Each structure stands twice: as structure tokens, then as C-alpha cells.
Simulated assay, not measured.
Amino acid sequence: MQEQNPWTILQEKPVYDNPWISLTEYDVINPGGGKGIYGKVHFKNTAVAVLPVDADLNTFLVGQYRFTLDAYSWEIPAGGCLHEPGKPVSQDICLAAAQRELLEETGLVASHWQLILTMHLSNSVSDELAYVYLAKGLVQQEAAPEETEQLVIRKLPFGEAFSMVEKGQITDSMSVAGILKLRLMQAEGRL
């Protein structure tokens, strides 16, 4: 198993930049020795998602129209974690961002938090990193979504959310991965 980088970067060229992402094009020699180009989308924030579960094993999904997909999407609450460029991602900052997103999107506050998953969301074209948390000990407060969010909150049994994943009704990668991870934890008696 080779774990060293087999790619050679000949040149890199910034193509696009905004407050959330940047796009860089690389002239490369690929692992087979051929010359080519590779594009990389760099995410300036770390993604965070929250799977809230109450004492009766109900969960909460957020429905919203996704501009990039031109489609409606059911998801677990999620957002971004701002951190300083070039510095390691702090778990404390990401947890605080997850707590903020849960409150903003659903009005829920949780007393127990557990990181259940770390994942890369699309590692063939981006470096986006995500943390998925389980939130328990829920108390309802008032939601305060951002102006770009027109959200519908849906409380449902966790088994129904799992069924939505199986039927392809939930397609967001963090939501799918988080729900499947929690189902595995449930099956192994780790809830």
C-alpha cells in the first residue's frame, strides 16, 4: 500500500475566490506519468451537522430548497464552522458551531453532545471536511434561521428518517452518513 503522494504539481493557478470557497487549477503529472490538469475546490469553513434525538428516539429534519440542486431537500440541521485559514480545526469551535446551527435551524438546545463521524464530503474535487454530532437531552426554544433559509422543521421517529434514507428521500451526504451511523450505533446497543 502506497501512502505517499504520487502526483507532481508543476504549476498552480487561482481561478476563483469568494468568502466561502476558492478554486485552484493545477498543472500536474499524474500517477501514471501523464501531464494533465486538476481542479480543487477549497472550502474555507468546516461543515458541521447535528443529528438531534429526543428521549423517545424521535429526530428532527430540516426541509429546504437547495439552490445548487434546484430541488427540495430533507436534511439534518447543518452549517459551517468558521476557523482561521491555515490553522488546525479546533473541536471546541466546531462543537460551538454545531450548537449554534441546531438552535438557529430548529430552536433546539441539547445538554449532551457526541461527535459520531468525521468525513470528507467530495474528496475527488474538494477538501471539504465535515463533523457530524449526536445531540441528546433536547429542550425546545425559538429557532432563528438565517435570511437565506426558508426552513420547514419535521419531527419524526428515527426509524422513519432511516427509512427515508433507504428510499432515497434523504440524499444529503452528511444526513445520510449521520443517520446510517446512528442506526449502526442503535443496532450495536451504543445509544
Rank of each mutant, 00 (worst) to 15 (best):
Y38F: 15
L138G: 01
V139D: 00
L69G: 04
C81K: 06
P145F: 11
K167C: 06
F43E: 06
M119Q: 13
W20R: 14
V165W: 01
E142S: 06
G34Y: 09
A96E: 08
D54Q: 08
W113R: 12
P14T: 12
T118W: 10
R190K: 15
L129F: 13
E149L: 11
F43I: 13
S90L: 08
G178Q: 10
L156K: 12
K40Q: 12
W74Q: 13
L156H: 05
R66L: 14
V28Y: 04
Q4P: 01
S73N: 03
L121M: 11
A135H: 01
L51G: 01
L61F: 04
I21A: 05
A71S: 03
R66H: 06
V53R: 05
Q186L: 15
A49D: 01
N18R: 06
P52Y: 10
A96D: 04
P77Q: 09
Y26W: 09
F43Q: 12
P19L: 07
A71H: 06
M164Q: 10
D92K: 13
L103N: 05
S90N: 06
M185Y: 13
A177P: 01
P88L: 11
E188N: 10
E25L: 15
C94T: 15
A144L: 15
L108S: 00
G80R: 08
S111F: 05
G80P: 02
I116L: 06
A130E: 02
D17N: 11
P6Y: 09
V109T: 13
R190Q: 15
V176N: 04
L151V: 04
H42N: 15
L129A: 09
L69C: 06
W7S: 01
Y65F: 07
V53S: 00
E101G: 03
G33C: 04
Y72D: 12
S126M: 14
N18K: 05
Q141V: 13
V50H: 00
K87G: 03
L182Q: 10
A55Q: 14
L180R: 14
L191R: 09
V152W: 12
D56I: 04
G34N: 14
A55N: 11
V176Y: 04
P19Y: 11
L61T: 05
C94K: 13
I29F: 03
E149N: 10
V109W: 03
T59E: 01
L191S: 09
M185V: 08
D92F: 09
V89P: 00
G159I: 11
L180E: 10
E128P: 00
S111T: 15
G159P: 01
Q91T: 12
Q2E: 14
G189V: 08
T106H: 03
K44Y: 02
V125K: 14
D92A: 14
L61K: 04
G80A: 08
C94Y: 04
D172C: 10
I153W: 04
E12P: 00
C81N: 10
